[in-house]
Design a protein around this nucleic acid. Sequence first.
RNA 1: GCUCGGGUAGUAUAGUUCGGUCUAGUAUAUGCGGCUGUCGCCCGUAGGACCCGGGUCCGAAUCCCGGCCCGAGCGCCA
Length: 439
Amino acid sequence: MDMDFIGNWTRTHDINKVSQDLDSQQVVLFGWVQDVRDLGGIRFIIMQDRTGTIQITILKKRVDPEVLQKSDLLQKRFSIAVMGTVKKTNMTPRGIEIIPTQIKLLNIAIEQLPIDITGKTPANIETRLDARALDLTAESTIAVFKIQHTALQAIRSFLFEKGYLEVHTPRIIASATEGGAELFGVKYFDQTAYLAQSPQLYKEQLTMSLEKIFEVGPFFRAEESHTRRHLSEFTSVDIEQAFANADDVMALLEQVIHHVCVTVKETCSNELHVLKYKFEVPELPFKRLTYTEVLESLKEHGVDIPWGEDIPTEAFRELGKLYPFFYFVTDWPSKAKTFYIKPRRENPEVCEGFDLMWRYIELVSGGTRIEHKEQLVCRMREKGLNPESFKYHLQAFDWGMPPHAGWAIGLERLTMVLSGRKNIRETTLYPRDRIRLTP
RNA sequence: GCUCGGGUAGUAUAGUUCGGUCUAGUAUAUGCGGCUGUCGCCCGUAGGACCCGGGUCCGAAUCCCGGCCCGAGCGCCA
């Protein structure tokens, strides 16, 4: 099949920018064939780009024979350019259609696509991920990532506005940053290195220089987790701030989340409509429950957890039914949190760590950090960690480490909340999990 | 890692309980033909599948054993 060249054509409009205001004007559109409906004497080409779809209408008796001939060839996913006239009409949902004067065929696709991109016969997530590049062309999939983009943009602009500096810490590290989560090892010349599970230690160190920082980036956990909310590679939105405590960063966090919800709701109404999903902008402040209150609340509903134990998933699911929106869980037992979270001065059994939950999903975790070296070393030992392997981190505490606090949002989990997806792999372009390493 | 559940055309599924009209049904997709206002177009037509290996049996998609792959939940973790 002969292909055309773009030549001197330039795109004049994104497809969603073509409106009734452009009636009778000539436009040049680039995109793909999403669907062809041929009724005999009339043929409708549904053309798609990342912004939406538009109908190209071909009246076979009236159209230029060359255009007709070209349109005979078109199949789903063929990449095309269309020059044509915008026509106002009451016969399409958008009130416009394109009457083509010239069509260029830029590239072809196979006849039998591995998944249905129009949504008529939805495929399972596994099948979709195997053909992810194609799956990502489905309007509903695009919608998820537009929402993610909008959320991230909202977070960034909010934090920039508040004076946070965006930073980039290493992904390749020499040893465990936190203990706990398993690390992926990598060959690093003649040494063994690891993929970072979090920017935690670096961002803490940066509070003694840049004071208020944030970072968005991928982190890696070599856990055996096999659930709808875990990934081996995920995107973390981290902040850390000097001269602040848990209360300060919780207040910041709920404002960030609120701003994200408002922004997504305002600017992604089409995407939310495509996804058939609605959410309410949460009211501030978010509910704050202490760990002890959570246990009491669970006990009233028949779930008995001894104080000090971690809260199992099943209990969180129960809790999510009682508090179906955003809520904080604060004042965790010190032994249930990592070493760098600060125990409360008046009662060291509990700490200044918190989680922001959405129903049963842990969206964010954070807290006040320990700023004194001796206490930090002491906590490392309690957790069975060797302070020697943290010597480069610990030396920073000799140089005027300020009191500080911070948090980390799981971006894919936040996207689940904002898009109503129930599997985290739907909110990641190319997910990596216990099983999947491709595509 | 543990416990369940599953593997049938490109996709999504029915059939498996209790083996036999299963020559494996349906939808959608694909090919071909028809149709001038569709928008999940419609109508006709064609081709297309029982994860692999072994066993029981006159007979296995269905039962048994082994393998491979996948999902959900738990644990771990965030």
